[in-house]
Amino acid sequence: MYNFKFHKVDNIQDAVAILSTSEDPKILSGGHTLIPTLKQRLSQPTDVIDISNIDDLKSIKNNGNKITIDALCTHSQVAKSIDVTTEIVGLASMASQIGDPQVRHRGTIGGSIANADPAADYPAAVLALDAQINTSSNSYNSDDFFVDMFETAINSDEIITSIDFKIPKKSIYKKFRNPASGYAMAGVFVAIFDNGIRVAITGASIKAFRLHDLEKKLENNFSVDVLKEFNVDTTNYNSDIHASAKYRGNLVKVLLEEAVAELV
């Protein structure tokens, strides 16, 4: 790994100050994506800013119609939170399927969302639960947040501080794991709200996305029959060493059928 200057901060202002004045800085929280990237020399930051000591970014709050999860909450913390397990079952289940237990002790929700890996799990939850992403200086709607592969709408001097997830009536996450990495070859998140249904897919394309046409069909008739007649458009799906676009399209369809069957 290349050398870099390590900074440890205990408040967000100091982190932003270093972020704004360093040549090529990177934010470090759990490090379970950044450190492998540094080892492979895919990233060569001049400065690494460890924000894991910022204690006021580590809690989960239930605000009645939404759950606010601070950016430094680990996957393990989200999976076990009473608020999340009771109010957003799909989100708790999703967090419990990331990596393995030891990885979940370190990896954080803020890091996962900021990294916007096309095969990460959280982006599907962000879209399906109509989350709001709050940063050190701004906030973003879920539909505007994921821009491209590994690219989000946030600026280079912003740090994600928390995510507000709307509480649905019901939710579920289904994933087909890559057997080696545990990443989603395809993952589907379905959430039922009083005013509609949201369906988000991750792992299949360059970024997580919603299936607007399927959402409308399920709003009219929430049943597995709708899925049977639904054709997955794989035009923008990824083909790589793990799976072809067609295979991913089939995974999406099967996972959606399973998800809807369990929610009916």
Binding site: K8, L28, H32, D50, S52, S76, P101, Q102, H105, R106
Partner: peptide, 17 residues
């Protein structure tokens, strides 16, 4: 680290200062 099992190959020493 503080009682939790973690992978020390993916943790910088300075992170656990």
């Amino acid at each position: 680290v503080d009682g939790d099992s973690v992978k020390s190959c993916t943790t910088l020493a300075m992170q656990v200062n």
